[in-house]
């Protein structure tokens, strides 16, 4: 199996006259934590939807987890995980019901589901809460649970869309430790965030401005290149030049 898990070439998406994503090209290696940054309206969500097999590019090509984004969207959906702050779990179902539902959607066998569910509950220390409705869990637990569920089928790559909003700094770090651990076990992480300190947790970071990727490198190299102390400074230097608003 190749060690490049995401590969896109000149990926472009137009809506009428508006070019939301403009010829972006990059590769992501297995086990990398890849930060996908950009101001609101820069084209991140549109790009991410194409990578997840939810929307087709206007032109260009791409490959995710070994499948072509133009023709094999359904296969991609089965081989990736996805978590966003806005939607991940069903609030009106219990912890166990959510686990079983998503395991079923990802096509895990009954035996495999039981095994993975036990592991997951143990790891999160949620065994005593398995029959609790998800809506009554604290936000930090919900986020850890949705991340675990998004990776229940051992996907090649997991997409995290602003996963950590609103939680305290201790919980946020526990969450990033889970991300590190998952990446260490060979799952590729593709993450968007508005927290610039989190950008520094990433192996490499890309910054989108006006639909294009304007910078892509390790946080250390980016800071050097832009003569900046923090990723926040790098981001602001680039995003201030944006021509289009949200």
């Amino acid at each position: 199996m190749s060690d490049i898990v995401i590969s896109v070439h000149n990926l472009t998406k137009r809506f009428g006259n508006f070019t939301a994503v403009d010829h972006i090209t990059f590769d992501v290696q297995r086990g990398e934590i890849f930060g996908f940054l950009g101001a609101n309206g820069a084209g991140k969500t549109t790009a991410m939807r194409m990578l997840c097999g939810l929307s087709y590019p206007t032109s260009g090509s791409g490959n995710v987890a070994g499948f072509d984004i133009m023709h094999e969207g359904e296969q991609i959906k089965r081989h990736i995980g996805y978590m966003s702050q806005r939607f991940s779990l069903y609030n009106e179902l219990t912890v166990s019901e959510n686990i079983n539902l998503f395991a079923g959607i990802y096509g895990l066998s009954k035996k495999e589901t039981t095994k993975r569910a036990t592991q997951l509950l143990e790891r999160l220390n949620l065994h005593s809460e398995r029959n609790t409705l998800v809506k009554s869990l604290p936000l930090g637990w919900k986020q850890k649970l949705s991340f675990s569920i998004a990776t229940i089928h051992n996907p090649e790559v997991v997409f995290l869309d602003e996963p950590t909003g609103g939680v305290d700094p201790v919980t946020r770090r526990q969450f990033w430790e889970m991300i590190y651990e998952t990446a260490n076990n060979g799952t590729t992480i593709f993450v968007t965030t508005h927290y610039m300190d989190e950008a520094e947790y990433c192996s490499r970071v890309s910054i989108m401005v006006d639909g294009e990727i304007r910078a892509l490198d390790t946080p250390t190299n980016l800071k050097q290149k832009f003569n900046a102390m923090t990723m926040d400074d790098v981001f602001r230097t680039l995003a201030r030049g944006a021509k289009r608003g949200e």
């Binding site: 101001a39 609101n40 909003g165 508005h194 981001f235 944006a242």
Partner: peptide, 10 residues
């Protein structure tokens, strides 16, 4: 500023 990007927050 929740959910707002770093430039707009500033």
């Amino acid at each position: 500023t929740t959910g707002v990007d770093a430039v707009s927050r500033c």
